[in-house]
Design a binder for these strands. Structure first.
Lengths: 201, 201
DNA sequence: GCTAACGCGTACATTCCCGTACGAGATAGA
DNA sequence: TCTATCTCGTACGGGAATGTACGCGTTAGC
């Protein structure tokens, strides 16, 4: 709530602790949405009380972790060239940030239990919109399908990313294989299906 | 554990209660994996103590619900013609039972928290194998892709079904639209991609 | 070096859920 | 009608997680 600039100055070690806690929270929560405050503190290598010194409640911590992941996502997205052929742009996007997007989505579901729906929409709107715009541009270029609702296409991509991340965690897919599988699957979902292609001609 | 035939006879009203509880458990758990025993009892319209009269522990209830859903799935699958063109067979399968499969998958994730991995594999093996065999047959027919691991294809279909069910629950997709969207998406995922088609020829 | 800020542990109150114990009233089924 | 079975409420104990209170030792930063 309070802008970072207005809070009383923090000491350097406090800054480091907070960073480690947020990082641990992102990792723990995206792995297990029900991760305990104690789990996160242990993962961060700090005491539970130290954590409570920086975050008053668990929901506040979850929200901070989600915001952090979304900001990272925004930053990475901003650095990717999304112009040109939408299919190639999507491949670039997935190659460089599928794990980040998957993490954000997992965090989002973790946050659904503790944050209000309105707050969630507010936070997630930006991130999802970038993907949606890319898909929309692909549709205008005629390389992405238009026979399914765009909301579904956006979310289907997220479900696939999440699923691939989970397969990887569960040991059913090697980390080095994920990128290729994700790209192939997503491109198949977004591509113009044969039936529609005929209709378009 | 104990076969139904060997347990002492139950009265008709008890039979009805159990049926309502299992049904409520399936519905509640597939909506919220963390549904409380009390939630389920309320949804079933019985007291919590009545529930405990039939199921000793929550894990036992979860397992029963999962088994029930899987059995329903098996029964439906057994009634579907899976011969002929694998694509059409898949469409028939999805049309008649996407919601059932989605429910089973959701229940499976709910069960992952309370049942052992070994027990889960044991229970789920049959259901997943039917889908896997269908996909494998499609690959032999040359209508389904072979460039991605079959395990991934099977699970990707499950992720999509789950996702579609969630979109429907969240009010982002109309119930009457789900079937079409699911079929279109799954067929796109399984279809032979253009690049592989060229290579095959 | 001084001081405020920080790390961190113990202890405690609270809440929520699970599972058990007991028992009184209702009902299916013979 | 009679009885075993079933429903279901209250009450209780245990466990886990959240958040608070207090305090001592340490360290960053001036």
């Amino acid at each position: 709530m309070v802008p970072a600039e207005m809070r009383p100055r923090r000491r350097a070690d406090a800054e480091r602790s907070v960073a480690r806690i947020v990082s641990a929270a992102r990792a723990s929560l995206s792995r297990d949405p029900d991760a305990t405050v104690d789990d996160i503190a242990k993962a961060a290598g700090v005491g539970r009380m130290t954590l409570y010194g920086h975050f008053r409640t668990r929901p506040e911590l979850v929200e901070t972790a989600l915001i952090d992941a979304l900001h990272c996502g925004e930053a990475v997205l901003a650095g990717i060239d999304l112009s040109g052929d939408a299919r190639e742009a999507m491949t670039r996007l997935l190659t460089s940030s599928w794990s980040l997007v998957a993490e954000s989505t997992a965090l989002l579901t973790a946050a659904q239990k503790v944050l209000s729906a309105a707050r969630l929409r507010e936070l997630h709107a930006g991130a999802a919109q970038r993907v949606e715009q890319l898909i929309r541009r692909g549709q205008q270029q005629g390389v992405f399908r238009t026979d399914l609702p765009i909301v579904w296409l956006v979310n289907a991509v997220h479900y696939i990313l999440n699923g691939a991340a989970e397969e990887n965690r569960a040991g059913r897919m090697e980390t080095e294989d994920v990128t290729g599988v994700v790209i192939a699957t997503v491109q198949s979902i977004l591509a113009v299906p044969p039936s529609e292609a005929r209709a378009t001609v």
